[in-house]
């Protein structure tokens, strides 16, 4: 059962058609069809093991699709490759922090800013515009003073924020955040929320996985509820949260 989107002619940023992903006998994604509206923030919620992270992982090519089609900005894909994520206009953060541990905070940001092609990259020294961009990102996530320390020496919250910083270093249309708020202290949480809100104000699409129901009630414009790899409900946040099947399956217990 799905709730119809509030506005049927709302443009779509990203759509999946019957995508599947199996881990052995476990169906992490089971013929999932979901459409994410353009602009604004969509939150994906669901119990543990409902396929939220798997969805983000197949969308960014970290895990290969077992079936179905992903449509990004009108482009249908049966195979999503990880290295094409930015060219699809997407960037992401990881649930388990995956920074480049044994290089500096500064290099963690610079690494994703530079030229993707081999030959220019070999000759390229740090360009002023990349440096400025990295500086603004690090100031944004409050890590400018820490720029020379190794990423592995940061606290958990700082690592989490640096991951968000690394994701927003790419100026793209769709931002995928996998549990960006987990384990953040209130001050850092506010900083992370401000970053998300700023992205929304600039007309970007944000897809957000969160377990924090306060945030789910507060931030997103649109809600997608997954259960056992299938769509349980989607639509306006209030409507979805109050719909009986969601209360039954997930929130009511």
């Amino acid at each position: 059962m799905t709730t119809a989107p509030s506005d049927p002619i709302e443009p779509i940023a990203l759509e999946t058609q019957e995508i599947s992903k199996h881990f052995g006998a476990v169906r992490a994604l089971d013929q999932l069809s979901v459409a994410i509206p353009k602009k604004g923030m969509t939150s994906i919620v669901g119990p543990n093991g409902s396929g939220k992270s798997t969805l983000i992982n197949v969308l960014s090519g970290v895990l290969p699709l077992d079936g179905g089609i992903v449509i990004i900005d009108g482009l249908g894909l049966r195979v999503v490759k990880a290295h094409q994520t930015p060219s699809h206009g997407m960037t992401r953060s990881f649930q388990e922090v995956r920074l480049f541990d044994q290089i500096s905070v500064w290099d963690n940001i610079m690494a994703v800013l530079t030229d993707r092609r081999l030959n220019p990259a070999m000759l390229e020294r740090s360009r002023p515009r990349y440096k400025e961009k990295a500086k603004s990102i690090l100031e944004r996530v409050g890590m400018w003073e820490k720029r020379d320390s190794l990423a592995m020496d940061l606290s958990y919250g700082q690592r989490k924020l640096l991951e968000i910083g690394r994701a927003i270093a790419l100026d793209v249309n769709i931002y995928l955040f996998d549990e960006p708020f987990a384990g953040l202290f209130p001050q850092m949480l506010e900083r992370a929320k401000a970053i998300m809100n700023d992205l929304r104000d600039r007309g970007r699409t944000i897809i957000l996985i969160s377990h924090n129901m306060d945030i789910v009630r507060e931030l997103p414009d649109h809600l997608v509820v997954l259960d056992s790899g299938a769509l349980l409900a989607e639509g306006n946040v209030e409507e979805v949260l109050n719909s009986p099947e969601v209360i039954d399956a997930y929130l009511g217990t």
């Binding site: 960014s60 090519g61 970290v62 990880a82 290295h83 094409q84 994520t85 930015p86 060219s87 960037t91 992401r92 990881f94 995956r98 920074l99 480049f100 541990d101 044994q102 290089i103 290099d107 963690n108 690494a111 994703v112 993707r116 690394r166 790419l170």
Partner: peptide
């Protein structure tokens, strides 16, 4: 060096 640290993660960045 980023590949050394996390090959899959750097791939996602293009």
């Amino acid at each position: 060096t980023a590949i050394r640290e996390d090959e899959r993660a750097i791939e996602v960045f293009g």
